[in-house]
Simulated assay, not measured.
Amino acid sequence: MLGGLGQLARPDAVSSLRFLSEFVTPPSNSSAASIVNPSSSKDTKITGTTTGSTTTKRQKLPLPGAGPSRVLDCGAGIGRVTKQVLIKAFDHVDLVENSAIFVKQAQEEYLKAEIESGKVCEVRCSGLQNVEFEGTEWEGRFDVIWCQWVLGHLTEDHLIMFFNRCKKGLKPGGMIFVKENNAKIGIVIDEEDSSMTRSDTVWKEMFVKSGLKLLREEVQKGFPSGLFTVKMYALEPIP
């Protein structure tokens, strides 16, 4: 959700698609190619071995033989990120959202056409602390699990457990993407909903504790000053 700042939707979507494009090959009939134009940036950092200014040696998803690409949108709301980003980058999208009201709106209104076309598959009503992958139809299902503006509602313990469960939901070579607000220092707690805005340092501590390797990070551009800095992180499980 954009907190009433609807004008941020397009720069948010464009930056996310460009970030994804380093690791994901969109469907051949996708409109993403007209949006994505990756370029190097001083706010971009690639960890590990690189070739060129912005491309890692990691093979792009979906891997050969893995079938159609599939992504899980976590904390999806009514499906804004699904509609504006993920549908353009993947063949199929599943969603999980804690609010039954949002799930109903996604199914019956906002994503109705995408569900009928088969691009959007399951829309599950659940909190992330209760999502299970192992032993379910979601085990080994996803090329990517995408988490945007939702993980601040999880405590440290729940967040680490969630990341570890996510590993069971990934196909071989699958990745986790995180896009979240960044506090300058430590953790800022919202007095209204008790959500936490973690600093970049804290996020990276969470990734290490969760057994995730940071492949790339990037600052969201095009947002007004005065807001929290927003960063995107591309992660893969450490074998």
Rank of each mutant, 00 (worst) to 15 (best):
C166L: 06
K60Q: 14
E180R: 02
I46C: 10
K171R: 15
Q59R: 13
L227P: 05
S194H: 11
L128Y: 03
G140V: 06
I145P: 01
K83H: 13
T197G: 10
N130A: 14
P239I: 01
N37T: 07
D193M: 09
K221P: 01
G152C: 11
S225Y: 04
R141S: 14
L235W: 07
F23C: 06
E192L: 12
D91Q: 13
K167W: 04
P26D: 12
H92Q: 14
E109M: 07
Q105M: 12
D43P: 00
R18C: 13
H153F: 11
E22Q: 13
G75V: 00
E132C: 12
L212V: 08
V178I: 15
G174T: 08
M1S: 14
L86E: 06
T56V: 12
P11A: 04
W146Q: 07
E236P: 04
G211A: 08
G135C: 01
K83W: 02
L8E: 07
I115W: 09
E134Y: 06
N182T: 09
Q220H: 14
F177S: 10
G4L: 03
L227C: 12
V188N: 13
V36P: 04
S117R: 14
V14E: 07
E108T: 15
K171P: 08
I160M: 10
E116Y: 01
G65M: 11
E109W: 02
E236W: 03
Q105T: 14
A106K: 05
